[in-house]
Amino acid sequence: MKSHLLALYNNMEEAGLVLDELNATKLPGFSMKDVVIKSPIEHPELSEKLGKRPVYVQLFTLLGVLFGPITGLTLVASAQASFIYQVRGGRPVVPVPPDMVLTYEFFILSGVLMTVIGCFIGWKLPGNRSPLYNTRVSEDKIGILVKAEESTIPYLNEIFKKHHSLEILGEGVK
């Protein structure tokens, strides 16, 4: 049975020390993978301590920029070639420069859409709510959320308290 614990800290330095200690201590039923930082701004120097957590958004972008122009160009060119073909202004029925312009726009549109979709998937949003949240996290506090076996929770609680946590939230913890 795993349980959650969220501790709030005043500043990054304190939170950093906690993470260092969590990293150093070996506790049963707990690993750094179970640690989540919740912060009002991005903290690359804190996230570093969590180890490598890859982001896959770029793959979606790549997919988008490949898919968009190819389908776009195919659709436009085959639409021009469909039905009774209509000559306009003496230009070729499938003209290159206009199709390039449109392909370019499809390239960007599909790239943007896929990036945003990739981002939502990366966020696991909407819908995925990670447990234990405190509104002060969106203001100016740094939260550290851990997930561990029930038996390990008191030890973690100890570590959090040692570094002057402002508040500790969690199941069965006061």
Binding site: T74, A77, S78, A79, Q80, A81, S82, F83, Y85, V87, G90, R91, P92, V93, V94
Partner: peptide, 19 residues
């Protein structure tokens, strides 16, 4: 279908007028 059309009539689709 229109894709077929496109490939089949490529030269005529690519010609300029009047010639």
């Amino acid at each position: 279908m229109s894709l077929n059309n496109l490939i089949k009539n490529w030269t005529s689709f690519r010609s300029r007028r009047p010639y």
